[in-house]
């Protein structure tokens, strides 16, 4: 595929996601400046997000939103970007979500950990069912690389989840790669942790939100790279 066509496709998808998902996106409600350091050196950029919430009955609601970020690495010609539109529906103890995304970096784990990859488009879906403090769910992700090779990747992730001093989730990843995962989320979501052991190796990510300051600190470690970042929300 010609580079110009590839870029056009990515831009077209991003535009579609924005147009399809934005309902009243007159202004973005959350903006942030990410500063990160990783294998590509220092990266800076801008993140934007917009979300609307609509009640569904007394015990349910629906969230629709868009979001994304653009970062530029030091000494790199091309910027890294990732944009998505999502919808989440919660009805009692049942929740499901759908996300369409595209970009030139991988789907964020916990939050933004920019790592360059082939331009791609994809979809992520999740179904969750709780029974009080325990529950289970199924997540799935498919991703198509917008390149000459056109590589297709997918994963199906069943998981169990329970709440005890936070939310714990144990998952298995099936599909293009096989592995296990553990994630933890502190009750007020100030601390998030994700550990995954997949075919590519071990990866760990941690995210800490400072409640007194508009800052989020993150650190990620995979077999190939380590990364730290600060996001300043304004």
């Amino acid at each position: 595929m010609q580079p110009w066509l590839r870029n056009l496709l990515v831009l077209g998808l991003i535009g579609f996601v924005f147009l399809a998902a934005s309902q009243v996106a007159l202004a973005f409600e959350a903006e942030d400046l990410p500063f990160s350091f990783g294998p590509q050196g220092w990266q800076t950029g801008l993140g934007l997000s917009q979300e609307t919430v609509k009640p569904m009955g007394l015990l349910g609601y629906e969230k629709t939103g868009i979001g994304g970020f653009l970062t530029q690495a030091e000494g790199q010609e091309q910027a890294l970007s990732w944009f998505s539109g999502h919808k989440q529906v919660i009805l009692g103890n049942i929740g499901y979500s759908l996300e369409l995304f595209g970009g030139t970096t991988g789907r964020p784990i916990l939050s933004t950990f920019p790592s360059g990859t082939q331009p791609h488009v994809g979809a992520y879906g999740e179904f969750s069912r709780m029974y009080g403090s325990v529950g289970h769910g199924l997540a799935g992700q498919a991703q198509l690389s917008v390149s000459e090779v056109g590589e297709f990747e997918y994963s199906i992730i069943p998981y169990v989840q329970f709440t005890r001093q936070g939310v714990w989730r144990f998952s298995v990843s099936l599909g293009s790669s096989f592995g296990f995962g553990l994630s933890y989320q502190e009750p007020r979501e100030r601390v998030k942790l994700d550990i995954a052991l997949v075919s590519e190796g071990l990866s760990m990510h941690v995210l800490v939100s400072l409640s007194e300051h508009p800052l989020t600190l993150g650190a990620g470690l995979t077999q190939e790279q380590a990364q730290v970042f600060i996001r300043y929300w304004f």
């Binding site: 929740g95 529950g135 709440t163």
Partner: peptide, 12 residues
Amino acid sequence: IFQPVTNVIVVR
């Protein structure tokens, strides 16, 4: 409303 599925308290 405390929602176990998201571990969030929704205020309406």
